[in-house]
Nucleic acid binder design. Sequence first.
RNA 1: GGCCCUAUCGUCUAACGGUUAGGACACCAGAUUCUCAAUCUGGCAAUCCGGGUUCGAUUCCCGGUAGGGUCACCA
Length: 470
Amino acid sequence: MSEKVRVRIAPSPTGYIHIGTIRTALHAWLFARQNDGVFILRIEDTDKKREVEGGVKIIKDTLEAVKLNWDEYYLQSERKNIHKKWAEKLYKKGLAYADNVTPEEVDAWRADAQKKKKPFLYRDYITDERIVPWVYGKNALKLKSTPKAYKWHDEVRGNLSAGPEAIDDLTLIKSDGYATYNFCHIVDDYEMKISHIFRTDEFLSSTPKFLNIYEALEIGHPKFVTLAPIMAEGGKKKLGKRDGAKDALDYLKDGVLVEAFLNFLALLGWNPGKDNKQEIFTLDELIKEFSIEGLGKSGANYDQKRLEWINGHHIRNLPLNDLYKLSEKFWGSKASQPDREYKKEVLALIQERLKYLSEIPELTTFFFEEPKVTKELLLSIKGIEQPQAIEFLNATLESFCDSRFTVEDLQERLNRLLEDLNTKPGILFALIRNAVSGSKVTPGLAEMVSVLGKKVTIERLESALLILKH
RNA sequence: GGCCCUAUCGUCUAACGGUUAGGACACCAGAUUCUCAAUCUGGCAAUCCGGGUUCGAUUCCCGGUAGGGUCACCA
C-alpha cells in the first residue's frame, strides 16, 4: 500500500524566490529524500503576462543555490495540448462552457456582489443565453460546477469540510489557450502521479473547488499537505513579497550558510517532536528526522535573531578549511594580497564571533591594513595617563623584541608584564590592543598579536609610542 | 460581508484528559585571571475570553474575540 512518494514544487517565473517558497520546497524535498521519492520542479508559466524575463533561470539558480535538487523538470506551458485534451473531455461531457460575458460585465457583477455583501459566485450571474460555443484560443472555457458540500482530509489540518457555497465556475482554459493554475495543476499532478501536494494556506479555501474539478474529471487527488503560512516579522500578516520578503539569494549573499538557512526554514512550521529537543540540524539530520506529523497548523513568525543564532552555530561547527572555502568571496578588497594561510589564521580567530560571513571585512580590517591609532584612543582607557602609557608600551616592546611570537610565549610575557608593571589586564591589555589594532574590539590579545606577527606588531607598537609622545 | 483556517512565554514551539505547563531564540544577571563574541550557570516570562462535557481540561464540544486566508481569463 506504500505508493511511491512523488512531490513537486510549482513556482511561477514572476521574479525572485522568497523564503516562503523555499520553505515549502524544502519540506517537500525532505519528504521526498527521506522516502526515496521523486522531487519534481514544475514551472507554472501559464500566465504569460506576469512572467518576467529570466524568471525560469532565477528559479533554477535559487533552488540550486540552496541545494534543493530536482529529479524531474517540466515547463507547464509546454503541456498546453495535454491541458486542452482534458478540457475538451469536460466540454464534450457538458461540464464546461464558454460564454460571451465581457470583463467589464464581470467587474460589474463582482461589484454588485460586494454591494450586497455576498461572495461573488460566477454561477449566480451567468445565464444560459450567454453561453456560446467554445473556440480554443478564442474564448475562455469555464467549469460548469456542481455545487455540493465536501468533506476531505488534510495530512496536517485533519478533517476539513465546506458547504456548496464554496463551489463556483472556475476558468479552466484562458482565451489565449493556456490553462489556468486551478485547472492545469490538477491535470499535471494527476499525470505526474504526484502523491502529496505540499502547499501553503492560501489554497485551503479553494480546495472544494478543486475537488469539484477532480470529480468532473473523474480522477482521484493526491494527499493534501497544507503548511501554515510564514508571517511577516512582528506582524500579523502573511509574509509576502510586498511585506519585504527577501529574495532567498540575499540571505546567501549576506553570508548565511545554506545548511543554516535550511535548518532555520525547516523549523518554521515543523519540529521534531517531544522526544527530540534538537535545534541545530545538518541537512542529513533534517532528512532523517522530518515528518509530516511534526508539521504545525498555526502561522509562524519569521525571526531574524533566530536565524542569526542558527547561522552562528553552523559557522562554528564547520572545520576551518570548509569555512575558509565558503568565506572566499566575502573577504574585503584589502585582503586580496595576503596569502591564504594568513587569512585562515585570521579566520580561525573570528570564527566563533561570526553571525554572518559578510561580517568578515569589518572584523578583520586591522589584519590587512594599518589601523588608525589616535592619542585619544590610546588614552581612552580609564586609569592610565600618558607617562604610564609610554612606560607600558616601552616595556611591552622590550619584552616582545625577543619573543618567538607563539601564543604561549606571548601569553607568558604578557602575564609577566602585568606583574612587573603592577597593573591589571583591563589596563595593559586594552592599551596594547588599541595600539596594535586601532580597535577596542578584537579577538584575544595573545592570539591576535601572534597572527599579526612580530614585524607588524613591533612596528605598530613603535608608531603608537610616537603618537603618544606628541 | 460569505466561507475556510488558526489561537501556549515578546518569538519558534512541546504537551495527543492528570506535568511544579517543558525546551529554544531574545532579554537580564553571574562565571570565564583583557575588550567583543563564544561557552557555562541562573533569572524573567505563556495556555485569548465565556460557557459546557468530565472526578479532572492547554488538550474535547459550543459561542464570542482576535489574526490569517479566500471570493481573478494570478499562481
